[in-house]
Design a protein around this nucleic acid. Sequence first.
DNA 1: GTGTCATGCGTAT
DNA 2: TACGCCTGACACG
Length: 272
Amino acid sequence: MPEGHILHRAATQHTKLFAGRVIDAESPQGRFDQGAERLSGQTVAKVDAHGKHLFWRFDSGDVLHIHLGLYGKFLVQTAPFPEPSPNARVLLSAGDDRIHLAGPTACDILDEAEADAVVERLGPDPLHRSKKQLQDGERRFADLLARRRTPIGRAMLDQKVIAGLGNIYRAEILFLAGLHPMLPANEVDAEGVAELWQLSVDQLRLGQKSGRIVTVDPAELGASSRAKLSRSDSVYVYKRHDEPCRRCGALVRSASMDQRTIWWCPQCQPEE
DNA sequence: GTGTCATGCGTAT
DNA sequence: TACGCCTGACACG
């Protein structure tokens, strides 16, 4: 159930645990037998992420490319290892550490050029750290939006425009920016574009740090909600159809956009 | 227990 | 625009 923050979190954690180590791989499920055989005995160089894609880079030049899709999940395990569930696509282990991967959309071995090609198909990633990358990213993001008449709600989920946002962040960031999801992307003014980028950077970073998506400003939460934050307490509009907006009280609306649901506050995100 | 839905996306139509 | 992937959570009975 992963948006970009989860993958970057995994990249950091997996690098910490496995960089420089020789791994053993197996595929209890059997759908990655050949890959596991190929990777076993190889040394991990590092693990990095772009958007929702994760890349395990090996000294040999092999790259294990993973995309979790809608269902995929990583478990980090330490010895003594639990019995692997039979649906584990791959187990990657070194010494007392093991990654258990289940349900991914993609799990395949690429060479470096192929891995580069995956990244090149993606838009800029707001979780990239260097100042230069972020500045370039913002410029690309602005250029891409300027060339699209498509609704901003669709553009924000388009991984070629901005890599790493999923349905929750899409809805929440548009709310925070005060933009109606149907507004044409090329009609968002420069200030709005800059705000969308900055909100994406800030929100994804928060998510990366905490491992969960909490977009609601702590100052806007009641004391009781703060004590135990349920998912519906942690967001402004996502899955809150017909509930009152936390800021203005208007009823949150929802609609289907490209087979995904989008939520917005008709008052805070006016349609013009 | 069964049915539906979902933080995603590639491919076919 | 529709389907397939292939999993878990949750609502409902």
